[in-house]
């Protein structure tokens, strides 16, 4: 799907040093604090992290859907080379749902309960393209068929509450794909579903991306989900990307202690009967992050230099980590950091 070196093609989306902060009465919440990532055409990027690591906010920032008191304070988001952080509301609105679409976590809440499926699909087509109502309806029917909904004709006439959760998520995915976008941001779209449905949805999303050449950012807290789906993985912790790389490399040989902790926390990695591995402590408050590396307080191999903020550095082509003392390093990497 991707070329030999991902950076030789122009990425569909390139996020550079993105900071999205929330200015609440209690203080500044640094939900996203310097995220850099990119997605190439047709590629699936898994954005992994615990709740509160800023992965969803990253997704909403890309779409320009951050509401007050939140604000993008720094960084750049470039869609096909076009800067989005300075784009007007109207420009962003035109991109949303047409070139960059989004799928939400809870299918029970995503669709408007008082509008029929066809209304919600047709409006998505017609707000971006000058087509007749019947043409829009035909596209809606085709989009529903595409995501494997049986008898789409009659489903179009339904209200959301008449469909099951899995069915509703398929409708949401169909809506996301309906205008053949270049990028889809999927915010934990399978978390609320049964495992069997989850597997079906994953397979369908993957197939759709391959068929349409749509790039995807799949936000999840579930490493197992992305490892079977994503081409590359970016692991987030406390508002920053701490490790990126090809899925197989990151999963089989994690370099950041946090990534290793995450992988070890997946029950299947444990021998039967042994105690489940866990990362000690809790995610730090985003309002009051530890000085230096945010993972320092929970890290089994923290060293003195971790009191400084670790920069992101490339350890192999396409493989980046934000750590002074990575897993498997012969000696602490502090010396490698240029002053």
């Amino acid at each position: 799907m991707t070329g030999a070196d991902p950076r030789k093609q122009e990425p569909t989306l390139a996020v550079e040093g993105l900071k999205t902060h929330f200015f609440t009465k209690a203080g500044v919440v640094k939900a996203v604090d310097g995220v850099s990532l990119h997605v190439n055409p047709g590629e699936i990027l898994g954005l992994v992290g615990e709740s509160g690591s800023g992965k969803s906010i990253t997704g909403f920032s890309i779409l320009g859907l951050i509401d007050a008191p939140g604000r993008i304070v720094e960084g750049s988001i470039r869609y096909k080379g076009r800067e989005l952080t300075t784009a007007s509301d109207e420009e962003l609105r035109k991109l949303r749902g047409d070139r960059i679409a989004m799928i939400f976590q809870d299918p029970m809440m995503t669709l408007n309960p008082v509008l029929r499926i066809d209304t919600q699909m047709i409006e998505t087509v017609r707000v971006h393209h000058r087509v007749s109502k019947s043409e829009a309806l035909e596209r809606s029917r085709a989009a529903l068929a595409e995501v494997g909904i049986p008898s789409p004709e009659s489903r179009l006439k339904n209200y959301p509450h008449e469909l099951s959760g899995g069915m509703r998520q398929r409708v949401a995915i169909a809506i996301a794909f309906i205008n053949k976008p270049d990028l889809i941001i999927a915010d934990e779209p399978t978390t609320a579903l049964d495992v069997t449905i989850q597997a079906q949805i994953l397979a369908e999303a993957q197939a759709l991306c391959a068929r349409t050449g749509t790039a995807m950012i799949w936000i999840t807290h579930d490493l197992a989900v992305v490892s079977s789906l994503a081409d590359r993985i970016a692991v987030m912790y406390a508002g920053r990307v701490v490790e990126t790389g090809r899925t197989s490399e990151v999963v089989s040989a994690p370099r950041h202690p946090y990534t290793r902790g995450l992988i070890n926390s997946v029950p299947s990695h444990n021998a039967r009967g042994s105690r489940l591995a866990q990362i000690p402590g809790m995610t730090p408050s985003l309002m009051n992050l530890p000085k230096g590396c945010a993972f320092r307080t929970r890290c089994p191999q923290a060293i003195d230099v971790c009191l400084e903020t670790p920069p992101i550095r490339e350890i192999a082509p396409g493989r980046e980590i934000r750590c002074f003392n990575p897993v498997g390093a012969a000696q602490p990497a502090a010396a490698e950091v240029a002053p």
Binding site: L65, R93, M102, F104, M109, T110, N112, T124
Partner: peptide, 16 residues
Amino acid sequence: QDYIKFARAKGISSSR
């Protein structure tokens, strides 16, 4: 509610 956010994510105009 999510359905309003989703409508915004679809690019629907604010008047609609």
